[in-house]
Write a protein that binds this DNA or RNA. Sequence first.
DNA 1: TTTTTAATTGACTGGTCAATCAACAAAACA
DNA 2: TGTTTTGTTGATTGACCAGTCAATTAAAAA
Lengths: 190, 190
Amino acid sequence: MRRTGVMALRKGALVNATIAEIGREGSLDVTVGQIAKAAGVSSALAHHYFGSKEELFLAAMRAILSGFGTEARVRLATAKTPEARLRAIVEASFAPQNFQPHVISAWLNFYVMAQHVPAANRLLRVYQRRLAANLTHALRALSPSPEATAATAAALIDGLYIRHALADAGAPDSATAAARVMDYLKVAIR
Amino acid sequence: MRRTGVMALRKGALVNATIAEIGREGSLDVTVGQIAKAAGVSSALAHHYFGSKEELFLAAMRAILSGFGTEARVRLATAKTPEARLRAIVEASFAPQNFQPHVISAWLNFYVMAQHVPAANRLLRVYQRRLAANLTHALRALSPSPEATAATAAALIDGLYIRHALADAGAPDSATAAARVMDYLKVAIR
DNA sequence: TTTTTAATTGACTGGTCAATCAACAAAACA
DNA sequence: TGTTTTGTTGATTGACCAGTCAATTAAAAA
């Protein structure tokens, strides 16, 4: 039970601290020292486990993306009809966990990172492709042009996300955001 | 004709260089030195005219936002019907000038900046409010819930923007993106 | 127990960069 | 002409930070 315990524990703490600090700061302008301190370890340890700051950021990004993926998989598993599958995907995208302020902030910053860090770009593409594929598949039987509808819905999800990230008031809450996407889908599939 | 000439000239060059460098780098991680060099002046001059790096970034943000605003105003001026107004707004948002890679990159980075620089947040809100107000106004006579439709359309515009910013292939071009928003609006207004 | 291996850190280094300043050049003006 | 104003820069400073390393402690293995 306590075999690889420490290493996984520390890595996890550092990844969480990274997400938290990026969220707190609102930018990628966080030092390894800050992150390490928040995780309760020294900055040297962070380097020891991750090698570089960029690698640490990527690990944090992977953690968030994998959270999305898991959420979607779980919900899709119990969805039988195409409509239910659509709802599952949309609701997974707007699950409360994804709407925690620090997660949303980290997410936004990863967009920026994806512009100049190839590995980050690849990660994001995997997520985007999977989202598009899931939507397209669910729309196959419903929409005259599944790909286009899926692309629009995906963009709508991202856009609502951003609005949420930047608003301190007046923005739709996550349930409303999900409902908006479902509304779009309802009118788009016929 | 040549009164304030030099100052305006240098400021303009520095603002353009800022946008260009942010685009080239893909992040706000550009030094004043880099920007100044691209503008053909010394970094000391940049500080002389703008006081600080942040002020320079804000000036660049203002320039981009004002570009959007002008574009929209021009197109709206000749739009007579509500439908034409909608089209004018959407097409202004997706005007080629706004889709130049460095503009799109700067835009994305300003989103991040808006998270932790109050002045940047305010600027972005002004833009968002104006876009929403324009859309809502045009939708007043067309949609049963103009505000909601406007909010969704605005999010869709932002989302398509981001997809475009991150894709090096497979993303809809600007004309397609505009068409997608118009398609959404067409089905939403009845 | 002794030895090996893993975990952890404080101190340091080399480099970067925003911001300042004193000085110089070149117009504009008197 | 000399004098003020405006434009401009090189050099410098002070702070910060990613990443390294040698050394220390604690745990595991022999």
